[in-house]
């Protein structure tokens, strides 16, 4: 049986999944939930690929059939994966410091690959619990700053100054707000510090709004 994958015509076996065929060819399709023979429920939908008929289907669960045309990287696919990651992150408690993977996981990698920002410096920070600057009443911008620096400053013993720019996701900021309030840090002071590196006043306003304006409690 022959299938065409990214324009390449290849031989495939009956019952093979798209993911298997792609892996064999060295074409990378990201996966999160798939674990061969353990979990094949196709839940995360990160592995979506596009068929010739324009449908998006999960590569980890779809069995090839003769003449199938598959694309593994199109703008539509990237967009779908990006939104999936956004959603995934919005429901993800950012406790990377307590996670054995220490922020070096497929999720974080994919997020940076697909331009999904939303993981704060805290995720990469080696300090936790009592050691955290905030717990010591110092103003650290880690919780509202985009990750990627491996929390260099903190490793050097300084608080985060927010040089990488703020995370603008509302849920992250709300989480951060909780942390600041819990430790009695003045939000005004945080905003003051944020001014140093916050490039655009729009971003600043957004954060101020999320951080200071009281959310109406639901229901």
């Amino acid at each position: 049986m022959k299938v065409r994958i990214n324009g390449l015509e290849v031989e495939a076996r009956e019952g093979e999944r798209i993911l298997d065929v792609a892996n064999r060819l060295g074409i990378r399709i990201p996966t999160l939930c798939y674990l061969k023979n353990v979990y094949e429920g196709a839940s995360c939908r990160i592995c979506v690929v596009e068929l010739g008929n324009g449908k998006l289907i999960p590569a980890c669960a779809y069995e090839v059939s003769d003449g199938l045309t598959i694309s593994t990287d199109t703008p539509r696919i990237r967009e779908s994966r990006r939104v999936t990651l956004e959603l995934l992150l919005s429901a993800h408690r950012i406790t990377c410091q307590n996670c054995p993977k220490k922020g070096e996981c497929t999720l974080v990698e994919l997020c940076s690959e697909y331009g999904v920002e939303g993981i704060p410096v805290c995720a990469e920070c080696p300090l936790h619990g009592e050691d955290c600057f905030i717990a010591r009443s110092e103003i650290c911008l880690g919780p509202i700053t985009a990750s990627g620096c491996k929390a260099e400053c903190i490793r050097d013993g300084r608080t985060c100054e927010g040089c990488r720019g703020p995370v603008t996701r509302r849920d992250v900021i709300e989480w951060a707000r909780g942390i600041y309030i819990e430790h009695g840090i003045s939000l005004e002071a945080v905003l003051e510090k944020l001014k140093t590196y916050c490039a655009s006043s729009r971003e600043f306003d957004l954060i101020r709004e999320y951080l200071v304006v009281k959310e109406v409690v639901e229901g």
Binding site: G41, A42, S43, C44, R45, I46, T84, L87, L88, S90, A91, E215, V216, E218
Partner: peptide
């Protein structure tokens, strides 16, 4: 609750709509 688009997506949609009907 099996897949992410629906489990998280419906929540995200609902939250946005709630914000709209609440004027936020």
């Amino acid at each position: 609750g099996k897949c992410i688009p629906c489990r998280v997506g419906t929540k995200a949609l609902y939250d946005r709509l709630s914000a709209i009907v609440e004027g936020m």
